[in-house]
Design a protein around this nucleic acid. Structure first.
Length: 256
DNA sequence: ATGCCCGGAACGTCCGGA
């Protein structure tokens, strides 16, 4: 099973890229973030015509996540447990072949410190709670999405320049590591431990793409039982070189 | 030190993004 995650930065603007990607990469499950539309605004018919089932958790203008899949998903749930009062659409889960798969759009958190950073940390604590619940239930899972988090300085083009950024601050990284220490596997880094400049995001500004100034902030985290089945992983960097690209590129893994 | 570039909403220009 091939699982990919992609922050598309508006699914309406990126529809052609999305349809191309489904055709070229053929993921069994594609997790989307920042669809930036409500459920009824999602280009459902076009995606269904490409052979994919569509589940959305949309919101007007901002955020919004979706799960596209070749097979019909089971038990689709919207919203992160513990964040029921949160009006922002950032989380959804569905089950495929016994694996619980989540699409995650973790808050950015800038500027830090401040309310937005507090919201990020609160959201991460709720996600950690969800990890604990899934582990307690011994449910195999994959948590994929835009984590807005660079795990280490190897995931940042300018570590010193980003030292005070919410994506890199020790408090953010500590909560991410708490998840990792529960036994989760970063599917990309597990298979590419020393690969430099393996970025999933390149800012639109200041010629970041042309200069190779990127960040690795999109991740697919695997539960222990799922990590045992990890076959391959990659970052589809070529999507950033197209006309009118998203600032993020797809990240994927395959499991047996 | 600040803005650069984008999308959405809306129609002038601001907010949010990372």
């Amino acid at each position: 099973m091939k699982i990919a995650t992609w922050n598309v930065n508006s699914v309406k603007v990126r529809l052609n890229h999305l349809l191309d990607y489904l055709k070229e990469a053929e993921p069994d499950v594609l997790l989307l973030q920042e669809i930036k539309c409500q459920d009824d605004g999602f280009p459902r018919l076009e995606v269904q015509a490409a052979g994919y089932h569509v589940e959305t958790h949309g919101q007007k203008s901002y955020n919004g996540v979706a799960i596209l899949s070749k097979k019909t998903p089971g038990n689709v749930t919207r919203g992160l447990p513990g964040m029921e009062a949160d009006p922002q659409a950032r989380y959804m889960e569905a089950t495929f072949d016994g694996i619980r798969i989540a699409t995650i759009y973790l808050p950015n958190g800038n500027p830090a410190p401040g309310e937005k950073f507090d919201y990020k940390l609160t959201w991460m604590r709720a996600l950690l709670g969800r990890v604990d619940a899934l582990l307690d239930a011994e449910t195999p899972f994959v948590l994929g999405g835009d984590y807005n988090l660079c795990p280490t300085s190897a995931d940042v083009f300018d570590p010193a320049g980003f030292a005070g950024d919410a994506l890199c601050l020790p408090q953010s990284r500590a909560l991410y590591r708490e998840m990792i220490w529960r036994g989760l596997t970063d599917s990309f880094r597990a298979l590419n431990p020393d690969l430099p400049e393996a970025y999933s995001y390149f800012d639109y500004q200041a010629g970041a793409w042309e200069k190779g100034h990127g960040l690795r902030i999109d991740h697919l985290l695997l539960s222990p039982q799922t990590a045992d089945r990890l076959l391959d992983s990659g970052i589809d960097k070529q999507m950033r070189a197209r006309e009118k690209p998203s600032d993020h590129v797809p990240v994927w893994c395959t499991i047996s």
